[in-house]
Nucleic acid binder design. Structure first.
Lengths: 180, 180
DNA sequence: CATCCCTTTCAGAAATGACAGAAACTGTTG
DNA sequence: CAACAGTTTCTGTCATTTCTGAAAGGGATG
């Protein structure tokens, strides 16, 4: 590491937030650097290039490159080109609802969908095994739950963000619907 | 490991499910063993004692002990005592909705609450730092989102499971509420 | 109150995942 | 097409987490 600048060149709030977000991400199975870069971009008014991110966070160039790619896979970071600068600049999505929606979508794709498929397989393959009648029931319940969540997610996904956000804000309406 | 029995003594469905659940847990920041034990107990008709779990999964006794404690912290596994047997037996919650609700509650407590607190701190501490005006706005948005989620969660939590489950099942009603 | 059975704690070992640095690659510009 | 700026891939190293095995702890029973 031959860094010239480090995180201390950032305002204290951002430092604090970036650090926490890193640890947070970790607990949800996201690498620290990925989460930190996201936090940095999210709180940055202008897009940053990879080198800047390196010096701010004090991590290797390659690490930044891979993490940025991951964030792009999540769909919450985009490449931007600034006039007169050949370097890629990166910018985070800023709308919190859109952001969480994107994350949800990707987690669903990566984790829920494969699980649902596996549960279905389990059901099929054990169909005539009498030793696993109980287990099959339990797995069926789980499958129903995941299927329901998926269906619900799909419908939700079609809702415009603004509407969903508003609904969440005035969640009493939603709860009225839930009461019956 | 001087195990006498192993996972092969379980029906294939359960093996498959336990293995997948383990990997799944992992991606969500839960240790493989913890998730596997949960899967095992969830699909088991009768409560199991620690030794049984050891042999089924082929892991160390202490690992099982710690993992069981963790599952109890999550509130999804309970100790049961069988007449004529001094050993603790363990049983998973079986209702899928209740289970996910419990997990949600614990994740909120462990991760959302501390984050919300940190975001508030960030806001306070940077109140008169002009360099971080933009960041403060972003962090404010995030705080609003987390606060909303928390409020919504609290209300939801009061709903009886059955009602929530039914509402989810007939989610069209819910979506109607969301449309406005 | 000594024994037995079971559980938990703890310190070190093993596995895993994250990361650095170098090398390879890509595309742009004079 | 050579030089260059920037990005990505790859391999080995390091940090962290998970797990093991041994030892200590707890509490019921004769």
């Amino acid at each position: 590491m031959t860094e010239t600048v480090d995180m201390n060149s950032l305002p204290p709030v951002i430092q604090k937030f970036v650090l926490h977000w890193g640890e947070m991400g970790r607990k949800w199975g996201i690498s620290r650097t990925v989460a930190q870069i996201h936090a940095l971009l999210y709180t940055s008014e202008k897009p940053l290039h990879a080198e800047e991110i390196c010096t701010f966070l004090g991590v290797a160039r390659s690490n930044v490159s891979n993490s940025l790619k991951e964030l792009q896979n999540w769909g919450i970071v985009k490449v931007v080109h600034l006039p007169g600068d050949r370097r890629d600049h990166f910018e985070s999505m800023k709308d919190v609802y859109e952001m969480f929606r994107a994350i949800l979508a990707e987690r669903k794709r990566r984790e829920v969908d494969p699980t649902l498929q596996l549960l279905k397989e389990c059901q099929k393959e054990s169909a005539d095994d009498e030793d696993s009648t109980y287990a099959r029931t339990r797995i069926g319940d789980l499958q129903d739950f995941f299927q329901l969540s998926t269906d619900f997610y799909k419908k939700m996904d079609k809702l415009p963000t603004k509407a969903a956000a508003k609904a969440l804000r005035t969640s009493d309406r939603l709860l009225k619907a839930l009461r019956l």
